[in-house]
Design a protein around this nucleic acid. Structure first.
Lengths: 137, 137
DNA sequence: TCATAAATGCGATATAGTTGCATTAAGAAA
DNA sequence: TTTCTTAATGCAACTATATCGCATTTATGA
């Protein structure tokens, strides 16, 4: 957390209450949060509004501290980019339940190959599994 | 194509001009299309409107003939589910260029394992790579 | 050809994402 | 500490996307 704040400073961001509250919420949540989920979080709602949350997320994504995830049938969700290990998720197509998977990513080493073959740089990837959870099945 | 129409019939869908036009467009496009892209396609626009395209996509997805894809910074896109081999894409984070990758999916065999471990059924997954293309870099 | 229910068109509405502008406040400089 | 500059904010408006209700049309089985 200290680490993250420091990183924001280095990148020229001002350390405001909103920024801290948002980063805290993202840090405490064990799962990615959407703009709306952040917006209604009591700790955050008290301090700042939707537009601020939106722009703060933009800034954090801009400096690479935040990862934007795109799950089926839900808007974008965001999670802090601690370390550079990305995460895999399992999503229920019906109720939207989000589970984080514990696995070593099986496609990481492909990035370099794809980067060369296609002339792309700054590679990242998303690997997401979908299914029907026990309740929804 | 014949195959797909047959499948629609078996699933109880009525074979309308709209359905055929939409499936054709998706079939001819080498890449996934968004609702808007379909809506403005001349072949389709002539026959039916946005709500119909929307609901047709819903139906096709419902019977498993259509796959909904979620790429960063763009709305949902759709592609026909021919065979059950899914596809991998490489997306430019800036201009949004979409490339289909030719690779044998390295995580397919993980689905069964995850299904058991988490009590999920009807598993699918999405593997998408992002980067900056030559032009945008 | 007729009857029935699925599919459609239209317009309204909901939801997510985004912006302009006047105001506030973080942090560097004095 | 006070002052100054400019990033950050709040508010409200706005755009784009997604979705729905209902009256009408049309595909298909009898």
């Amino acid at each position: 957390m200290e680490e993250l704040i420091k990183c924001c400073k280095e990148q020229g961001l001002r350390i405001t209450k909103g920024l801290k509250a948002i980063m805290n919420a993202l840090d405490e949540a064990k799962l990615p949060l959407s703009l709306q989920e952040l917006e209604v979080n009591p700790q955050i709602a008290e301090i700042c509004d939707r537009a601020t949350v939106f722009r703060t997320l933009q800034r954090l994504e801009g400096i690479g501290l935040l990862r934007r995830l795109n799950f089926s049938h839900s808007g974008a969700k965001f999670s802090l980019n601690t370390g550079d290990a990305h995460k895999e998720y399992l999503i229920c197509r019906l109720c939207g339940e989000v589970k984080e998977l514990k696995m070593s990513c099986p496609v990481h080493q492909l990035e370099e190959k794809l980067s060369e073959e296609n002339g792309y740089s700054a590679m990242t990837h998303e690997l997401t599994f979908y299914g029907l959870c026990r309740k929804c099945n």
